[in-house]
């Protein structure tokens, strides 16, 4: 017997990924605003992401094979692919943007390293969440 339905599993996944994305975005933004690579403990994004991954994995197990397959149907993979493409281009475009900022002395290397890493993760996680909420591709 499945304890978690496919729609509930999708919602749990959405909340987990969106929460991790928001924490990553906040980390990068605060790093730039406060001009320091560790605006708050780096363990917070790690713990939120880890907790989300574990929750999604255990929820998928509790949902059973059929519900897990429904929650990861071809619309899910389509949304995920779209988010991966967007995340890739955000990551690529950050190089010239941050290169310009570093070159002009607006930002330091450690802050750029911290912000670019978390923005890359946030780009995929948040774009997937938005696509998933909109329910389309």
């Amino acid at each position: 017997m499945a304890y978690i339905s496919a729609p509930l599993l999708s919602r749990i996944r959405l909340v987990g990924l969106a929460a991790t994305g928001l924490v990553c975005l906040a980390f990068g933004l605060f790093a730039m605003i406060l001009d320091r690579p560790d605006p708050f403990s780096p363990w917070i994004p790690v713990l939120v992401g880890g907790a989300a991954a574990l929750t999604i994995a255990f929820s998928a197990f509790a949902a059973g094979d059929r519900n897990a397959e429904i929650a990861t149907d071809e619309l899910y993979f389509s949304e995920s692919r779209r988010a991966q493409i967007l995340g890739f281009w955000v990551a690529v475009l950050m190089y010239p943007v941050f290169g310009l900022a570093i070159g002009n002395g607006w930002i330091t290397y450690p802050v750029a390293f911290s912000a670019m890493g978390t923005f890359t993760a946030a780009a995929f996680l948040l774009s997937f969440s938005i696509l998933n909420i909109r329910g389309g591709v």
């Binding site: 496919a6 729609p7 999708s10 059929r66 429904i70 149907d73 619309l75 389509s78 329910g135 389309g136």
Partner: peptide
């Protein structure tokens, strides 16, 4: 219908609204 073909209701909804184009298999 979603239950019959093993996809989410949202997938059927997005196909009906011509937002999502399904694979040949689906």
């Amino acid at each position: 219908l979603a239950d019959r073909v093993g996809v989410s209701r949202k997938t059927v909804n997005t196909i009906e609204n011509q937002v999502f184009v399904p694979s040949t298999v689906l």
